[in-house]
Design a protein around this nucleic acid. Sequence first.
DNA 1: GTGCTCGGACCTTCAAGAAA
DNA 2: TTCTTGAAGGTCCGAGCACC
Length: 707
Amino acid sequence: MAERGPPNLPDSRAGLSPDSPRPRSRVLACVNCQQRKIKCDRKSPCANCLKHRFQCVPATQTRTRKRRFPERELLGRLRRYEELLRQNKIKFDPLHKDESSVEDDIAESRSDTETQEDQDESNGPSPYRHARSDNDHEPKPKQPTIINGFREATVKFSWDQMYASDDHIILGSPKSSVDLATLHPEPVHIFKLWQIYLEKINPLLKIIHAPTLQGRIIEAAGNTAKIEPRLEALMFGVYCMSIQTVKTETFQSMFGLSKDDLLARYQFGCQQALLNCQYLRSDNRDCLTALCFFLYSLQPNTNPRSLSSILGIALQLAQRMGIHSESFLANCSVFEAEMRRRLWWSLTVFDARLGELSGIKTSSLNPTWDCKIPMNVNDSDLWAEMKEPPVVQAGATESTFIVMRAQIADFVRSSSFHLEFFNPALKKIAKKLPNGGDVATFEKMMEDEFFKFCDEENPLHFMTIWTGRAHFSKCYLLEAYAKYIDSSTPPSQAESDALVAQAFRMLDSDTKIITSPRTAGFFWAARAYFPFPAYFHIIHDLKKRPISYHSNQAWEVMNANYEARFTCSEGYDYPLFAIFSNVILQAWEALEEVIRRSGEPLAPPKIVVTIKQRLLEMTPNAPTPSNEQSDGSLDTLLDQPPMTMPMPMEFGMGLGNEGFFSGIGGQSDFSGPDPRLFTSMQPPLTSDLNHLNWMSMFWGMRDGRGW
DNA sequence: GTGCTCGGACCTTCAAGAAA
DNA sequence: TTCTTGAAGGTCCGAGCACC
């Protein structure tokens, strides 16, 4: 072989004097050149990709260096193999003589097996390895015995034999005529989608271990005909998730097909791959993660109630695997337990969100389980063979966002204001929160111990800080509603002002996230949280006090948020947009009425002008029930009292009952143009919380097609 | 002749242990 | 704390092959 010249690296030692500042990171050969094993000039795009008109995907250093194989693990492995030889009555010269405790050895060998298998998995399957049992990762009993293990395995095996194929009961039958390999994108697009996943999805979910999965994907991309089913399901899941984050207008040029077509193809692929790995009976984390991706990808185009039902199945699968329980997780390897915790928190937070969207009064976000909060560590601190948990970091890490999210969710699931709405009986078993679950105390703790380490210049940290603060504001509002819901004493003026300030902050935080170029990549997540509680609180306050010292600020804050959210929307759901708009217009009319009496001139704020304009544009063509019941004109629409407007059942159901905000900040002392609005919304409160249902729908309103 | 694949030599990086 | 070692990971040359 010819002598190789100096490596063509920008940070090549040859080109650096000892005093030269060390470059921050190596520029790696692009994915395409790496794969083809050819020289890459490391430009973007590189000469090879330019020449062949490939999409040049820069490689990232996400693979972490493996620890050296410690000797004790080698001995452990040897012990295991000796045990296997003994079990099979094969003569050999043992290194480990006479085992004193068979059970100890079995336990150890099981642990070693798990480690080894995890390692195998992290190394990536050579194109196709035997489909391993779905119970690979199943936590083992703490004191396993051969008999117990055998019985368990036998029973499971028997069930599997009796009911060979029943996975079609939810996702339909597998289509044997479809070759899944043909549904995969070109390798270069696989890497592009993976890159998008790493940049835009992974930081906010962290339910896969990127360094591990990257190796597996690179290997699988080379031969899509022979991908192990669970990895295949994961890969399709990654495609589905990544596609959602690409703007429709740029999609065609990037992938050559329409976004909808490609999404449908990959969702179908994911569905088929899930069927291939028997997802309903599988206890495998990859399989559950793929199902989770599949469900996330359905969210923008699926009725939340339908999605919530299917997510219920995923949660049931998760609980069967024991990923919600620390006693189960104690039997997993450190790595596996941590990945399972991340997955569980992701599922519960997703479930809670869908619950809000669909008005379901049960939530998996409750104190009945004890899964710990994910550790604040980087992915490089985790590896499959690790025996000891990593050191949890005090500062910001790659997991900052998911840890923040889990911290808040953990607080909420034990807080009385949350349980009051969802299941007051669970208050008895909720853990005691600092200072009685006071939101302000919790927020201060999070600011001191968490946010102060974040740097707003960093997109993930920016997202963490402002998502966190928006959630705190929502907690303040909920806390107040819980406090005053049965109280005959309304909140004081100061308390009312403080609540309005929280609503402002919630909208401000949301506006920051939506408009900041730093978080543009995270828009897919931000759009799922329309800050309706804030809008509704502000509007209610404006109806009561059309002219107050903060009314100008209220319109400004709403203007800014409305503009941020609706100028970047790809479409509107007409009935829900109409309802939202109507509520805004009612508040405006209240102010208009007061000003008109004083004879002063009044120019409508931009949000009002835009809404009227939009409604006018949408009404003639809108295929909604309103067209069937009215002439569809804007005047007719706006003349209708909001609660007589055609609307989905969920909206109607609480409105004839009780209004969520009744009882807060005084009674019906406002003088809006249409008293029917708030008279229908403000009957006296009772202890019946059904009125929360419709509020929970508003809670979930979001822009875009699904709100 | 051109272009592609991929084995494997060579190079860089960095964890881990030894030495100071 | 610094130095040394050596394994893991990254680069890309060039042999071998297919195709026109």
